[in-house]
Amino acid sequence: MTPEGSLLHRARGAFKYGLEWIEFFGLAVIGVATSIAMGEEVLAMWQNNRVTLTDLLLMFLFLEVLTMIAQYFKSGQLPVRFPLYIGMVALARYLILDLKELTEWRMLAISAAILLLAIGVLVIRYGHVRYPYNEDRDTPPKKPYVRE
């Protein structure tokens, strides 16, 4: 029996195919849920006749999640920077929302966390530009879920 026809080889292929569909379904659920949450937020702003900075930051978080999903579908890869951006905005939103209840030390800690995430993004960007992966130079990005 050839290695391509072996039971193990077929099982691996089926497992990989199953994981791709689970991944696709999970991303679709996240995308739909994020879109619904964004719509609810727009409706709440409309009903309140008011847009606050926290509303805008929450909308930005929703857009970042959708951008992260779109980036994955375009390239088949998920840059680590996107969750870092989401973390920075979430921390900034928390800082703005709870400013009156926060102690000075907690404000400093949150600000330091945002600064560390920003430094992390810079280090990742520098490393990616200065030391690109071999597959980045040699092959175009793969496009999953695209029929040709």
Rank of each mutant, 00 (worst) to 15 (best):
E148F: 11
A14S: 14
P3H: 14
Y145T: 04
M107G: 01
P140N: 14
G120L: 08
V121E: 01
R81G: 00
A92C: 11
D136K: 14
R12I: 13
A92N: 01
R93V: 07
L19E: 08
P141H: 06
L102Q: 07
S75W: 10
F73N: 01
S35A: 13
N48A: 12
K74A: 14
R137C: 04
D138G: 04
M1Y: 05
I124M: 09
A33G: 02
L7A: 10
G39S: 09
E104K: 14
Y85M: 08
M45H: 06
G5A: 04
G18T: 07
T103H: 04
V65E: 07
P132F: 13
E135H: 11
L99V: 04
E64G: 15
V123F: 10
L116T: 05
I36W: 12
D138V: 10
S6A: 11
P83W: 06
L57K: 01
E41D: 06
Y145M: 11
L56Q: 06
G120E: 15
K143V: 15
F62E: 07
L102F: 04
L95V: 01
Q77M: 12
I30D: 00
V32S: 02
R125C: 00
A37V: 01
L63N: 11
P83I: 10
P3I: 04
F24D: 00
N49Y: 01
A11Q: 10
V65Y: 00
P79T: 05
M68D: 05
P79N: 02
M107A: 09
E20Q: 10
G5T: 03
A118Q: 05
P141A: 15
F24T: 00
R130N: 07
P83A: 09
E23L: 12
G31R: 02
F25H: 07
E40A: 08
R12L: 13
K142V: 08
H9C: 12
L117H: 02
P132G: 12
I22Q: 08
E135P: 09
V129K: 14
L19V: 10
A92E: 05
R10D: 10
E104T: 09
A28Q: 08
I22C: 12
I96S: 10
I110Q: 01
A37N: 08
Q47T: 06
V129W: 12
R130I: 03
M1G: 11
P79S: 03
L61W: 00
E4C: 10
L115S: 15
Y126S: 14
T54D: 08
F60D: 04
Q77R: 15
I110Y: 11
F82Q: 07
T67S: 10
L115C: 12
A112M: 14
G76L: 02
V121F: 01
P79I: 03
A33V: 03
R10Y: 13
V123R: 14
G76F: 01
I36G: 04
L66E: 05
I119D: 08
L63Y: 02
G26T: 06
Q71L: 05
W105L: 05
H9V: 13
M59W: 03
V89A: 03
